[in-house]
Amino acid sequence: MQQDDLSGMFWHYLLLAALAVGGLGSVIPDIQRYVVEQNGWFTARQFGEIYALSQVIPGPNVLIVTMLGWLVSGWQGALVVTIALFIPGSMICTMVIRAGAHNPEARVAVTVRRGLAPVVIGLSMSTAWVMFSTLTGDWRAAAVTLLSVVLVLRTRLNPLWLIGMGAAVGMLGVV
């Protein structure tokens, strides 16, 4: 059972990392689908909390995958998914270096970047939607969310402060 989980996670994250053009952040909706809906390892709410945590701790945000792996099957899980996460990038970087194709202005690179930009934007909209629908029916949380949207777009406050304020608001029992 646990062995199945490990190899399943390995292949799933390997595949996701291989598809994650424009950054691993764009595959968050699919990670949620995989760990919440498909496997039931976490509730949507827990996933949201873990995601929020991964945004405030120092380190690359992509390591949310390591947290999830650790929570599902301990050290082995954390190591397996972290390795899976970095294999595709390392391999393709090696190919790029070998081929001497270090040129970001090359037509292939420009085309891939420009062609996939709309898809990546669609994915970030999906992240927002999936996260927002987790708040179902909680109008006070939704109000905090909308307020933070306005603050991010209208002020130059560091988002970390906003998240800290969110924690305070939560502890005061407003949400």
Binding site: L53, T127, A128, G166
Partner: peptide, 13 residues
């Protein structure tokens, strides 16, 4: 606290 943080993080996304 996590609930409050999450509400803000949703706003950030």
């Amino acid at each position: 606290a996590l609930t409050g943080m999450f509400a803000v993080v949703v706003g950030l996304t």
